[in-house]
Write a protein that binds this DNA or RNA. Structure first.
Length: 556
RNA sequence: GUCCCUGUAGCUCAGGCGGAUAGAGCAUUUGCCUUCUAAGCAAAGGGUCGCCCGUUCGAGUCGGGCCAGGGACGCCA
């Protein structure tokens, strides 16, 4: 808020002038909302920070600073907004605002509408978020679901914070995993044709493999019965394409739309890998040893060097990945974010090393590790394994709980924390379920507005906010005023979960207000003001829910 | 063995860069619907912030050392 910025500057100027010998930066000055009402609406700790260097007590320093602030504030717009400034042990300076300052929030929301809360932090720079990127070897799991929810919400948040966002999926349509997939399908196919078969030890045992084999059989009969390379590559390609289509439709139904799908196979065919390795070789970051070619990732802090070309001449996974990252930066992204599962965390040093070796800045790439989601049905944990084909798919969870509840649950924890996802709970249409608490607030507001219209309160122009003087009203407005800083914090820390707790807080303030005061009454002016208040609340709720990808229902 | 994540109320978790009496939801107990949605509100109980040491006006927060749980450490992808 502008008030905060101005206040900070005044405090800064005042303390700079008073304590010339003490180094103070604007960063040092922290404005904070106190927990207790008697400590005012905002407080600063600056006096305690300078008191020691100045050789006086915190209270003494606070007294001096307050004097200076009061002299400076008179000629600013803040004068009308601050009712009292006082010092409290051991040296806090507390500011009390008049209600005038608070009503600015409502004006602001009214003016900006569903852009309220946005900012220009990104300055229109290009940012790419690569996420999910699951190998096409089966349907998406719950872990992918969390990554999808996080990546998509982060995309929304960064977009809202002024970045130009590209969402991208890297398709691993090559290599051993694909061979195993093709072979698994081929064996099931032979099984259908009544041939004795040996199902690969590491093969994918899920029922969906049989379904794919059945499709092939229905369509091509015994055309691919011979165990030759034609058959093998057919099953590989067919399986990959089939499963990618499954994944795409799952993501789409989950509300996640990717802008770009990049295929590893295509990357290889355009010889980007050789190109990238050539650069590394030229910069002397590649060397040969034991018949293999190694990337000198230790030059950038990795604990050991990594093989890029195996002794049999084929690439390790790192090689195409290096090429892919070079490709990203060639596409002129100012910043690249990769969202990975915890099983890849050991991979971070080598990919950031590669990015730096290619000549890009270290902080141009950020890898976020989204910790696993553990599924529960009540008190019973659901065990999963992709290979064995025993796992709950994202689609099943979506069908069980609904898209919105699933996304809300996935985003409710910090991405670095393990997440317990209780399907039974997310399914419940009851008060135990936190999604409904927030959505209910939104639906309630819509209902009141509808009711107000029916009662003939149609004219909503120029509401007089000064009529909003009840504690619950002021608390709610103050909460709405926090939205921009919540967004800024989430965008900066690349952590969507702040929005979830903020939503709960707004809903809580609204429900309290609702319970104590009637919006629609005989007092037309008060009704108008309160309608404006709940409309502003609705705007904030629906915007925040939109950023998370959760619906804001009109009726419940 | 090395590295990463986690440890806060009975349970699941919040706690921007250190700040005043540590918070929320659920669960438990108790109140509140003739008036806009009770999927709601209000109140109560519930804590050695894993343990120890340090840094300082002040530590759940920062540093060091332990303890416990989960995960990663391939010429797999």
């Amino acid at each position: 808020m502008d008030t905060d910025k101005l206040l900070k500057k005044i405090i800064y100027d005042a303390s700079r002038k008073l304590f010339k010998g003490v180094s103070i930066t604007e960063q040092n000055i922290i404005l904070q909302a106190p927990k207790l009402p008697e400590h005012g609406h905002i407080s600063t700790n600056i006096a305690m920070r300078v008191s020691k260097a100045a050789g006086i007590s915190g209270m003494e320093a606070a007294g001096k600073i307050i004097g200076a602030i009061q002299r400076n504030i008179i000629k600013t717009p803040l004068n009308a907004k601050i009712s009292q400034i006082c010092a409290k042990e051991p040296g806090f300076i507390n500011f009390f605002f008049t209600n005038l300052a608070i009503y600015d929030v409502l004006e602001d929301i009214n003016k900006k509408g569903d852009m309220y809360g946005s900012c220009d932090m990104g300055k229109n720079r290009k940012i790419q978020i690569e996420f999910v990127s699951a190998n096409p070897t089966g349907p998406l799991s719950v872990a992918h679901g969390r990554q999808a929810a996080v990546g998509d919400a982060l995309g929304n948040i960064l977009d809202f914070a002024g970045w130009k966002v590209t969402r991208e999926y890297f398709i691993n349509d090559q290599g051993r995993q694909m061979d195993i997939l093709g072979e698994s399908i081929r064996q099931r196919y032979l099984e259908f044709l009544g041939q004795s078969h040996e199902f690969p030890e590491e093969g994918y045992k899920g029922e969906y493999i049989r379904d794919i084999a059945k499709l092939v059989m229905d369509k091509y009969s015994d055309k691919y019965i011979k165990p030759d390379e034609t058959a093998r590559s057919f099953f590989r390609d067919y399986g990959c394409e089939f499963i990618m289509n499954v994944i795409k439709s799952e993501l789409e139904d989950f509300g996640v739309i990717f802008d770009v799908w990049t295929s590893q196979a295509k990357l290889v065919s355009t010889s980007k890998i050789e190109g990238a390795l050539k650069i590394l070789r030229k910069k002397k970051f590649l060397y040969e040893s034991e018949g293999a070619v190694w990337f000198k990732s230790t030059a950038f802090g990795d604990d050991k060097d990594r093989v890029v070309i195996k002794s049999d001449g084929s690439y390790t996974y790192l090689a195409p990945d290096i090429a892919y990252h070079q490709d990203k930066f060639q596409r002129k992204f100012d910043k690249v974010i990769n969202i990975w599962g915890p099983d890849h965390h050991g991979y971070i040093p080598r990919i950031t090393a590669a990015v730096q070796a290619l000549g890009f800045a270290k902080d141009a790439i950020t890898v976020l590790i989204v910790q696993l989601a553990t599924l529960w049905r009540g008190t019973e944990q659901v065990r999963m394994s992709t290979r064995a084909g025993e796992f709950v798919t994202l689609r099943q969870v979506m069908q069980d709980t609904g898209k919105g509840a699933a996304r809300f649950f996935f985003l409710a924890r910090k991405i670095s924390s393990h997440l317990d996802f209780d399907i039974e709970l997310a399914k419940k249409q009851s008060q135990e379920n936190p999604v409904y608490y927030v959505q209910y607030a939104h639906a309630r507001i819509c209902n009141i507005i509808e009711h107000a219209n029916a009662e003939g309160h149609k004219n909503t122009t120029n509401p007089d906010f000064k009529l909003l003087i009840q504690q619950e009203e002021l608390d709610l407005i103050r909460e709405l005023g926090e939205f921009p800083s919540v967004i800024a914090l989430c965008a900066q820390s690349l952590e969507p979960c702040g929005i979830v707790s903020y939503l709960q807080s707004v809903a809580n303030k609204f429900h309290s207000f609702y319970d104590k005061h009637r919006v629609v009454s005989d007092d037309t002016e008060l009704t108008k003001a309160r309608l404006a208040l709940i409309a502003a609340t609705k705007t904030v709720l629906s915007t925040a829910l939109r950023l998370l990808g959760v619906s804001a229902p009109i009726k419940m």
